[in-house]
Simulated assay, not measured.
Amino acid sequence: MREATPERRRRLEEVLSRRQPDLTVLLENVHKPHNLSAILRTCDAVGVLEAHAVNPTGGVPTFNETSGGSHKWVYLRVHESVKEAFRYLKEQGFRVYATALREDARDFREVDYTKPVCVLLGAEKWGVSEEALALADGAIKIPMLGMVQSLNVSVAAAVILFEAQRQRLKAGLYDRPRLDPELYQKVLADWLRK
């Protein structure tokens, strides 16, 4: 393994110093590889450190070129069930907002994304399960003014995550490292090996 150049190390440190450990996504049954890859690419772009997935059919799909290699920079934690994923996220202090086409769902821009937040996105065809909706802290939606009811799951993830980024930039949450020093060094060592 070659040693990282000083420029590469600086770039990795710069990116890692903006990672947001309290912003994440939970993907329930998102089984199309290009959608999963595109969501991870957006996670990288807005500074998500770790994403989460549940796929009861066994594992998660393989990555493709859509991710642009972002799967190397965003950790993906796979959970065995929706309940287990929620238990883990709640223990970490996250509020979970499920995307859903429901009358009582709030406009996604009304959520305070400067707090520890997880955005739950469901399967491409069916959306979030009733079980997951019942466990969520609330439902959010992207207002649609055209004929279609919803966006593609990866596009919806991007729209919501960039709103979270906008709020966090305004609040100064990207201005200083947010990872504790031990985790920062662990992740940096891992990234330097890639």
Rank of each mutant, 00 (worst) to 15 (best):
V48C: 12
K32G: 00
T24C: 09
N152L: 11
E91N: 15
A45C: 15
D22R: 11
L27G: 09
E84W: 00
N55A: 11
Y75S: 15
P61C: 12
A51Y: 08
E103G: 13
E103Q: 12
L40I: 09
R168Y: 05
G58S: 12
W73S: 01
L26A: 12
I160K: 01
S37M: 13
R168W: 04
K125C: 02
G93F: 13
D104S: 12
Q165W: 14
L23E: 05
N152H: 07
I140F: 01
L89V: 11
V25C: 06
E110T: 15
Y97A: 14
K141F: 01
Y75A: 15
S37T: 09
K125H: 08
V119H: 04
R166E: 07
G59S: 13
T62F: 13
K125P: 00
H34Y: 14
Q165N: 01
E91T: 06
W126T: 14
L135T: 07
S150M: 02
D175I: 00
G127R: 04
S81Q: 03
R8T: 11
N152D: 06
G47N: 10
A105F: 14
D137E: 08
S70N: 10
R8L: 15
Q165V: 13
G172M: 13
R178V: 07
R109E: 13
V96S: 12
A132Q: 07
D44K: 08
P177G: 00
L179F: 02
A158Q: 06
Q167L: 13
A132D: 10
E131Q: 02
V54H: 06
R193V: 01
A51E: 10
A53G: 12
G47R: 06
T5G: 07
A164E: 04
M147C: 03
T66I: 02
D180H: 00
S17G: 09
V153M: 01
Y75C: 05
R168I: 08
R18Y: 02
P21D: 08
A98V: 00
E80Y: 03
G58N: 11
L49I: 10
R176Y: 08
K186A: 01
D22K: 13
V60L: 11
E14Y: 04
Q92D: 09
A51T: 14
C118I: 10
L145G: 08
L12M: 06
N152V: 12
E84Y: 00
P181G: 01
G127H: 04
V74M: 11
D112K: 03
N55D: 06
E110G: 04
V119C: 04
N29A: 10
V82C: 02
E80W: 01
D190Y: 12
S37V: 11
E131G: 05
A136Y: 02
W191V: 05
G69E: 13
A134F: 00
I39N: 09
N55L: 07
V119G: 07
C118R: 01
E7C: 01
L161P: 04
A38D: 11
G138L: 02
G138A: 03
L179E: 11
P177S: 03
V25G: 06
T24V: 11
E91V: 00
L26D: 12
I140R: 07
L101S: 09
E50D: 08
K115H: 08
K194I: 04
S150Y: 00
A157D: 11
F108E: 06
P21K: 10
Y75N: 14
Q185W: 05
V78W: 01
A136R: 02
M147N: 10
